Amino acid sequence: MTSQVFSKRKLIVEKLANQIRRGEIGPGQRLDGEHRLAEEFDVSRGTIRQALGELQRRRLISIQSGIGSFVTYDGHALDQRLGWAQALAEVGSKVTTRVLSIEPISGSQVPGLPDDVALDEAIAVRRVRTTPGEGGAEVAVSFECASVPAVGSLRDLPIRGLKDDSLWASLREEGLIATNGQQSVDVHQLDEREASILGRPVGSSFLRTVRTSYDSDGQFVEHVLSLLDPSHFTLKLTFGDES
């Protein structure tokens, strides 16, 4: 009986894994809930839960206690899979992105990089986003430091710049497409350097998000630390009883 359950679980894992790799289950798309999957595969919810746990260990899916989370800008939900610039443009925001620097760094210099990510060399892309304030003056609403692996064409980013002014497009050009990951958020008081970049008083409170992304094979794609003006950006959660 035990071997039968193991065999069913393995078949479920491989079927779902193949659907994800072939793109039949797209990036960011939710799987059916445990109950529906159990009915589809004619197994117990416990077997489904074990199969989903294996897919998570392979970094093909992310299992959360809630249904999901997303960031909004002035009330508009942003699809972070597109990158900030494209996501902001799609909601019609008047936000301008300015690249501060693109430079090679060592993996040990990446702030908050998870211990399980093996990264010797990286490319750090630092950007500020601004929006028109009172009197037309530009006001900074976010600062972002994105670190990506120094592989292939990405090694040349400090020289040639971002493809189409987009880090998302540069990653896709190299074949790195984020499908899953994790993100944390807290409230952060700006230090002197950050305050100078954002044009705010030292100690001003900003939302700080740290996001690490992987592709469908579990390969590291991107690690992003963002400081977001809480008067514009909000983190929202949705929750329910489905996986």
Rank of each mutant, 00 (worst) to 15 (best):
I105V: 15
I67A: 11
E14W: 01
S153Y: 12
V202N: 03
L237A: 11
T72M: 04
E14R: 05
A169P: 00
D241W: 09
R98M: 09
L113M: 09
D241N: 14
R155N: 10
M1P: 09
R57T: 11
K94H: 12
V95Y: 07
R36T: 15
L154I: 02
T179S: 04
L78T: 09
Q56M: 13
R126S: 04
P111H: 08
Y214N: 12
F233N: 07
T179D: 06
F206H: 01
G68L: 02
L207A: 00
A178Q: 02
L176A: 03
A89C: 09
S216T: 13
L162C: 08
R155F: 10
L88G: 10
E138V: 07
F233G: 06
A178C: 00
S69P: 00
D241T: 14
R200S: 01
R22P: 12
D120P: 03
V43Y: 00
P132N: 09
D241Y: 12
D229V: 07
I197R: 06
A51H: 02
S65T: 14
E222P: 05
I159T: 14
D165H: 14
G136T: 08
Q50C: 12
Q86S: 11
L16G: 04
V71P: 11
D116N: 14
L207F: 03
R57V: 05
H188T: 05
